[in-house]
Design a protein around this nucleic acid. Structure first.
Lengths: 211, 211
DNA sequence: CTTAATATCACCTTTTCGGGTGATTCACAA
DNA sequence: TTGTGAATCACCCGAAAAGGTGATATTAAG
């Protein structure tokens, strides 16, 4: 059975072009095209698509908003985002909103068709440059490892207490030591982290993921 | 010119199978295969590959370590990771280490060839299920939005100062207001955030990404 | 065995914070 | 017009935190 495809795209030329591409493929079935996403829910209900081709920049409701609405009510409908710009934030928003794929508009006809089939089969097609950006978004997370600042076991323990928001007194009882000892440890922690207040230490600990 | 490909794979059967797949394609040129990654740098130097097919689990040096070493000295060499397991951590590590793609071993011959060509051209091929996982890794980041806790403009400004690790006095001079005003604002912030110390406020601000 | 690092505790001082109360100005909305 | 919320400032008090000095016990490494 052919994959049912609908299009949201405000520019008539592109809309008709996409329609042609889809119609030319035997495995795909062009069902409808819309110039804006105002009645996106109604449109989905009446056309029952398998895959939606969605332009990101549209008048009225943005493609990402529309995507969100679609995913909320029809989580099984696969949405393939299309854009001319490679805007990191937009890409990120689209992914968070549940986009099944992200194509740049310079994608070739064959690749576009392939991408539609791909999302239908559970794939996640991304234009190469977009995929790179996504990876770059993920990467930075795990960079700051092995930043222990030479903290001892006890110091790490106490620093963790600080990150929980605990006061000196609380830490003392939690660690079964006197409050003066807590102070001493914290002083040493401050020296090692090169800070001089509780909140600075907390900030540094969180940002450097010290555990 | 054919794309030069080398293989790191400890299992002989798979190694030879991959070699066959690559050799069968006119656009690819099988150059060498290695059963382990101990001399990975030497191997790259002597074979000058465009694309490396790297198994993740190998005796001695792991594929991810090898990947890291390759990327450090030969950042232009594209490395395509292969694995049987879809282990989130491994996937994540591989991405952070600079993998250009990530294939599961049940990938078809044609898809494998396509993936090799794809990385060579700057693409980022991922097996569908791996791509989904990558997206899931990215997603959670932007969940906590619209958590402004009804903070006013000024309060947000001052909270940001707190997150910078500033003392009341510093904030006062930075914002051109008296220290007592700073205090008042911070008291109000504490009420709204339901905390009662600077570090708690800082923690809550960072974790909820209040800006 | 000796040294260095770690962990423990005590005492002291000054500064910063947290909490409370109260007041004025301004702008925007009911 | 009368609130209401935001922003501003002041004063007070006690608790918490920061910073310094010094001391002791244990342990691990040289």
């Amino acid at each position: 059975m052919a994959i049912r495809v609908i299009i949201f795209e405000d520019i008539e030329l592109i809309r008709e072009y996409l329609q042609q591409i889809i119609s030319s493929c035997i495995d795909l079935r062009f069902v409808a095209a819309f110039a804006d996403a105002r009645d996106v829910i109604k449109a989905i209900e009446s056309t029952q698509p398998d895959v939606v081709l969605m332009d990101i920049q549209m008048p009225g409701i943005s493609g990402i908003q529309a995507l969100r609405m679609i995913k909320e009510r029809f989580p099984n409908v696969q949405v393939l985002m299309q854009t001319v710009l490679e805007d990191d934030d937009k890409i990120f928003d689209a992914i968070c909103a549940g986009a099944s794929g992200y194509l740049l508009k310079n994608t070739s006809d064959e690749k576009t068709i392939e991408a539609i089939k791909d999302v239908y089969e559970g794939g996640v097609p991304f234009s190469p440059s977009v995929a790179r950006r996504v990876l770059d978004l993920v990467k930075p997370e795990k960079k700051n490892t092995d930043n222990n600042f030479d903290l001892s076991k006890r110091e790490l323990e106490i620093l963790n207490c600080l990150v929980q928001g605990m006061s000196y007194k609380l830490i003392a009882t939690a660690c079964f030591i006197s409050i003066d000892t807590v102070k001493t440890h914290i002083k040493n922690i401050y020296h090692k982290l090169q800070v001089n207040s509780k909140s600075e230490a907390v900030i540094k600990a969180i940002k450097n993921k010290i555990t």
